[in-house]
């Protein structure tokens, strides 16, 4: 299922050596609310190497989407951001945070591609899909209008859309959800980006279509050696596509490591809960799913100490509710839990 664990592990060992395409370090995002600054993202760091897929996983509001928007430079203007987002390749290193809006626009579409969550609303309802795909090329003046249109059709063909020449002339409402998502992917891919960000690309689709789309994304990222940042709340999807996973909770990464390890033997209590709460086909019809009690803390009402401790069955008073919890290296991955060592030994 995961043919590149060695490469992924190597990449996580020494980030600079294998040349990660994307490196995010200590990314912090805060919003002003009632004259108070509220931290939405509290120092997130990760990297994605070319050819590798990193999945950001977590509940709604944990900060995964805002992370992807920050990388693309699409944050709402009211939010302030600090930290480093760097794109590296053979040609050198670009700090995305330091770029001006115009410089960043040159990268978007060409070096950075993004697939959005809602294929229904992310396409302009008044433009033919072929034109929308070609727009990435014409915006950047990469090629002529005719050439762009030709490439758009070729891209639709690569997406597995039958009769691409005719489909390119269709308006979004004439296509099914799966086809629209293929169009979205074509839009993101036609500029041949180094980094592909997929923000819940399959959430709006039914399961059979979902599998086809995932396969398409995986094939394309392997084929072109792209770094892929995959955002999802669905662990089944993530298990299918990612090499490594970073689990987020309340604006922090709580556990990160190779996908098989994290899913088979989760270390952080939150990851354990997340995996346990998945319904399986074999589950008895009326058997209750295990749920994590309580709710995600609202940004700004974050508890002291470990953000997860009020909901954690293993929390220890006096330990888990004071001070910040650092990411600790344990068993080949990083875990943000103070009790991780004792539990494993016990």
């Amino acid at each position: 299922m995961n043919p590149l664990p060695a490469l992924a592990a190597a990449a996580s060992e020494k980030a600079t050596q294998s040349g990660p395409t994307l490196a995010v370090s200590d990314l912090r995002i805060s919003a002003k609310r009632d004259r108070k600054s509220v931290e939405l993202l509290r120092g997130v760091s990760f990297h994605v190497a070319s050819g590798e897929t990193l999945a950001l996983v977590g509940e709604s509001g944990c900060g995964k989407s805002i992370t992807s928007l920050a990388v693309m430079g699409l944050l709402a203007p009211g939010l302030s951001m600090s930290g480093e987002v760097a794109l590296t390749d053979a040609g050198g290193r670009i700090d995305l945070v330091a770029l001006s809006a115009a410089e960043r626009r040159k990268l978007c579409g060409r070096r950075l591609g993004m697939i959005f969550q809602e294929p229904m609303t992310s396409l302009n309802p008044m433009q033919r899909v072929g034109d929308q795909i070609a727009e990435t090329l014409t915006t950047h003046g990469i090629c002529s209008r005719q050439e762009a249109a030709r490439r758009a059709v070729a891209m639709l063909d690569r997406m597995g859309i039958a009769d691409p020449g005719r489909r390119a002339l269709a308006l979004p409402h004439e296509l099914s959800g799966g086809m629209r998502q293929r169009v979205m992917i074509a839009m993101a891919m036609i500029g041949e980006p180094d980094l592909l960000i997929a923000d819940e690309p399959t959430t709006a689709l039914d399961v059979t279509v979902q599998a086809q789309i995932l396969e398409l994304i995986r094939d394309l990222s392997r084929e072109r050696g792209m770094a892929t940042l995959f955002i999802s709340h669905d662990l089944a999807v993530v298990a299918d596509i990612a090499d490594r996973v970073a689990v987020m909770y309340a604006g922090e990464i709580v556990e990160t490591g190779p996908i098989d390890q994290v899913l088979d033997a989760p270390l952080h209590p939150y990851t354990i809960g997340l995996i346990a709460s998945r319904p399986a086909l074999s589950t008895e019809r009326r058997a209750r799913l295990s749920a994590i009690f309580g709710a995600v803390p609202e940004p700004g009402r974050r508890p002291q100490g470990c953000a997860f401790h009020p909901r954690c069955s293993l929390a220890k008073p006096g330990l888990c509710d004071v001070g910040d919890v650092p990411l600790k290296r344990f068993d080949g991955r990083d875990v943000r839990c103070l009790r991780v060592g004792e539990r494993v030994q016990a």
């Binding site: 115009a102 990268l107 959005f116 992310s122 302009n124 993101a188």
Partner: peptide, 26 residues
Amino acid sequence: ELDYVQAARAMGASPLRIVARHVWPS
């Protein structure tokens, strides 16, 4: 604020282009 305008931004379209091609027609 619509998704497709965001998508246009993500592909690197300039504000002028977004206004002319995506906002005004709507």
